[in-house]
Each structure stands twice: as structure tokens, then as C-alpha cells.
């Protein structure tokens, strides 16, 4: 692995630049905060974030724990990968479940929005307070929606975890102001400048382990309220007349299984997922698609011509 070919060129690729920037952000947090933690949700963005953390502090293990704010309703595959990956990284894994939500038996079937509020939002605040973390890495990206486009990389929270959007600090060059009051905390988003496509390309290039649910496979599903839900365990209460049907599906995002819709897909490999994604983003487009170096547009054309 000495001096791989990519470094012989005197120019680094967009993925290498994104990687270097995320690593720089993580090191800055470790150098300037007292007790950082990485929020680990077991999804693809978390997978990339954890991989970057291992790179940032190599040969040392990342000098902070992983925190999984659990709801007890994640897919079984997610719990399996979480435990395996945490063990491989040499990092401490803290699993926090809001004791109140646990006591009340809060679940997505009976409690609607309360499920997310109590398990996730409240759970996260409780965990941060309990362990005294003053900085938490999160995997959010600016391209996720229009309203996140102006989110800061370093986002400050008051002692009561409130965010003041009117009072955000400007971020210049790569000089991050991490000064804060005694009880203030920071949320840090090292993947801010990554797009969904960057994430998939990086997972592919770096062979990062991801939950198999991102790849298509035959799975027991029911169609409910416009969502294709997977019956992941026997806690799933079937409504009258509902019979789980085996469909070839995959997931674009992962969360609590009763709240996460699947898409029908035949993409069984990472390359096929990326291809499906590229085609999905081009399928609806008309207009002047320029077609130069065999990019997305030529891909689409080839598909139309029955090449695949």
C-alpha cells in the first residue's frame, strides 16, 4: 500500500478532499473539546463517519466513544452490525435507551410522534447530560434538504439543548470557533459537504461494511399507508386481512423498522444500488442532457437501449 497511484498525481480527487476535510474537522473537535462522542445510528452515513474517525486518529483508536440512542425498534440486522463494527473499531459503545420510554412501553404502532420524541429526542438529551458530553458528532448532510443547506458544521446548543438559529457563528476558511460557555454543547457535522452519491461512492471505494438491508433481497413485507413495511419480527401487529408478501426490496434510509418504507428493487450489489440511484435521479429529466464523458446521461441512454 506504499504510495498508491492516486497520490502520485499532484491533485486529489473530490472524495479524497471530502475525506481530508472531515478528518480535519474531527481532529479539531478532539483537540478543542473536553468530552466528545460520536452519535452512531448504524446507517450508511454513520458507517462513513465511523470509517473517517478511524482514519483521523490512526494508529490510535478514535479517542471518543460511540453513542447509539436506541429505540428497541431498529431492524435486527442493524443491531447485529452495530455490535460487530463497534468491536472491530476498538471503541467503547454506549447504548442508551430512555428509561421512561422503556417503562411506558412506547412504540411506533400505538404512540405516533411520541415514539420519536421520547426515544430519540429526549433519549439523546438524557444521554448527553448523563455522560457529560460537550460535543457530539452527527452524520447529517447539507444536501439532505433545502433547509439544511445553510446549516453550520459546528452548531451550538444552550445548556438546555436549545438551538438559536438567529445566532449562528460564521464559519470562515477551516477556522472553527469552538469556544463555548460552561454548560453549552456542540453538534458537529463532519459530513456537511458530502452528497448522497458521494456517500455511496465512498462506501464502494473503501469497502465499508453496511447493513445488508441497503441491498435488495426477498423480504416479508406488507403495504400500509403508502409505505412498503418489512415485518422484521413478531412484534409487528398485522391488521385484519394483512398477509406478509415476499418482495425483492431494499432500503434507502434506515430507522425504526415499523416507520421505514422499502423500495422494490433488484439491486443486489453496491454497484447496482449506485446505478439504480443514478438512473432514478435521471429518469424524470428531460431537457438538454449533455452527454460528454459517459456520465449519468449516457448511462441512461444505454439502459434505454436495452444494454443492461
Amino acid at each position: 500500500m506504499n504510495a498508491p497511484a492516486s497520490f502520485a498525481r499532484h491533485r486529489i480527487t473530490h472524495l479524497e478532499q471530502l475525506e481530508a476535510e472531515s478528518i480535519e474537522i474531527m481532529r479539531e473537535v478532539v483537540a478543542e473539546t473536553d468530552r466528545p462522542v460520536m452519535l452512531y445510528s448504524v446507517g450508511k452515513d454513520s458507517a462513513v463517519m465511523l470509517h473517517l474517525a478511524r482514519k483521523a486518529f490512526f494508529p490510535a483508536p478514535p479517542p471518543f466513544p460511540l453513542l447509539h440512542v436506541d429505540t428497541t425498534w431498529k431492524f435486527r440486522d442493524m443491531y447485529a452490525l452495530r455490535d460487530r463494527v463497534a468491536a472491530e473499531s476498538g471503541m467503547e459503545l454506549i447504548v442508551y435507551r430512555n428509561p421512561e420510554a422503556e417503562r411506558l412501553g412506547i412504540n411506533p404502532f400505538d404512540h405516533g410522534g411520541l415514539h420519536t420524541d421520547l426515544w430519540k429526542t429526549e433519549g439523546l438529551k438524557q444521554a448527553l447530560d448523563l455522560y457529560g458530553f460537550d460535543a457530539a458528532f452527527g452524520g447529517a448532510r447539507r444536501d439532505e434538504e433545502k433547509s439544511r443547506a445553510k446549516e453550520r458544521i459546528f452548531s451550538f446548543r444552550s445548556a438546555s439543548h436549545r438551538w438559536d438559529p438567529k445566532n449562528q457563528r460564521p464559519e470562515l476558511w477551516s477556522l472553527y470557533n469552538t469556544k463555548k460557555g460552561p454548560k453549552e454543547t456542540i453538534r458537529v457535522f463532519p459530513l456537511s459537504n458530502w452528497t448522497e452519491l458521494d456517500i455511496w461512492q465512498y462506501i464502494y471505494a473503501e469497502s465499508i461494511p453496511i447493513v445488508p438491508l441497503y441491498l435488495a433481497a426477498p423480504r416479508p413485507t406488507v403495504e400500509r399507508d403508502g409505505l412498503l413495511l418489512m415485518v422484521d419480527d413478531d412484534r409487528f401487529p398485522l391488521r385484519e386481512g394483512e398477509v406478509p408478501v415476499e418482495r425483492s426490496v431494499r432500503f434507502r434510509t434506515l430507522g425504526c423498522y415499523p416507520l421505514t418504507g422499502a423500495v422494490e428493487s433488484e439491486a443486489e450489489t453496491l454497484a447496482e444500488v449506485i446505478q439504480e440511484m443514478l438512473v432514478a435521479t435521471t429518469s424524470e429529466r428531460q431537457g438538454r442532457a449533455i452527454d460528454r464523458d459517459g456520465g449519468g446521461a449516457s448511462m441512461e441512454r444505454k439502459k434505454r437501449e436495452g444494454y443492461f
Binding site: A149, K150, K166, Q168, D198, G294
Partner: peptide
């Protein structure tokens, strides 16, 4: 309309300062 979230942001009281957008071609991000 793809980039103008201004009215909504004003209502939410969010400071409108710098927004970052992303696109790519076959050669460059």
C-alpha cells in the same frame, strides 16, 4: 424556486447568510 427558501426561512427566523449547494458532472463535483 430550487434555491429560494427565503420566505420560509424568514418566517422561521433563521438567519439567511450563506447556503451551500452541490452538483456534479462527469468530471467535477
Amino acid at each position: 424556486l430550487l434555491v429560494d427558501g427565503l420566505a420560509a426561512e424568514r418566517e422561521q427566523g433563521i438567519t439567511i447568510d450563506v447556503a451551500y449547494r452541490f452538483f456534479a458532472t462527469a468530471r467535477r463535483k
